[in-house]
Nucleic acid binder design. Structure first.
Lengths: 185, 185
DNA sequence: CCATTACTAGAACGATCGTTATAGGAAGTC
DNA sequence: GACTTCCTATAACGATCGTTCTAGTAATGG
């Protein structure tokens, strides 16, 4: 009956390498051939493991989301309040080492708002995860509706500031604005 | 000497029609052929008037920015304070009629953060225009650095909320968050 | 050993892309 | 009228794309 068993580890390793490559390159220029060349395999190998290009991109983004959410949950720590958590979020996401990652993040956003069929899952889940983390940071005593409002505002502001930083590179102005916002929490 | 004179009006009319088409379609799918078909001309006509595809896209975005800045300046009105102006901005930009426009806006953002060579002019000018409008709304008595910080925060928050609204479509939550933010100004 | 399945690679197909000849009519000056 | 420049269109070129075809090798169960 059964022939050669499926090598799940190899697929996972390929996916992780593909995520690393995607983060460091332009999202709209990802192709079977470019990814295959970067990973040292042929396009047919990728096709065999991921199916269609769209499915490969979804797999890449899903894996990226896992990384981001895990890192975000660590940030929140235990018992930190909203202001502290928000400050940690800003320091983490605006770190220069995270620039390629968030560049990809906003590239996907730009794609998703015009083509909702794809990539919205990635954004909705990631946005919901972040809002949930910031809701929990407010403790159980805060009214649920109020907590959601505040979490939505914090996520939106930090995301907008990050977009400003990535587009203009004006760190002094954006950091000052972030401090102004965070101090008011 | 001189032959047939250049018809600047015709080029302007083509550009305006191209902007209308770009707003209603997916940015990454714009091509010579698709735009030409929508405008009822041949691709060579567009090439003749705009040069390269990149130059056509820049011309389209430049014209779009003119429209947006003109509309934004009207919004600010005369003598309105920061909170009032910010509220008007939110009402205007989150209006359902403006959805295609801001979808394109964020699509360009997504492209620009990964390919700074192009489109950054569009974003830097538009961002600077909006921040300037919100700086002026704070009056001449506010310290310049403080006014810049506050304007940056307001633009970032509204942009982040708009991104949330376009990506999730959850108007109730986002509108509540916007109200929370605007009430605190 | 053999049947079966997993995996990989090279080559090709059909489509679309930006761009470029090539060519002909339209609108002005002399 | 001649001449020049503007404007437009059809057709094709070369490149890249996602995908498929074909074929061969590796690893398991019987």
């Amino acid at each position: 009956m059964a022939g050669r068993p499926v090598d799940h580890e190899h697929r996972a390793a390929l996916l992780d390498a593909a995520v690393d490559h995607a983060v460091e390159h332009v999202f709209s220029e990802l192709s079977w051939r470019s990814v295959a060349a970067a990973l040292g395999v042929s396009t047919t190998t990728l096709v065999h493991h991921f199916g269609t290009k769209e499915q490969m991109l979804e797999a890449i983004l899903g894996r990226l989301r896992e990384r981001l959410v895990a890192a975000s949950r660590e940030l929140a720590g235990e018992g930190a309040d909203l202001a502290t958590t928000a400050r940690a979020f800003w320091a983490w996401s605006s770190d220069d080492h995270r620039r390629p990652t968030f560049r990809l993040f906003f590239a996907v956003y730009g794609r998703a708002v015009q083509s909702p069929e794809t990539y919205t899952g990635f954004l909705e889940q990631l946005g919901a995860d972040w809002i949930a983390i910031l809701r929990e940071a407010q403790g159980p005593d805060v009214d649920a509706a109020v907590a959601t409002r505040r979490a939505t505002v914090v996520v939106a502001t930090l995301r907008g500031l990050l977009l400003d930083l990535l587009a203009t590179g004006d760190r002094a102005r954006v950091d000052a604005a972030a401090e102004e916002f965070l101090a008011g929490l």
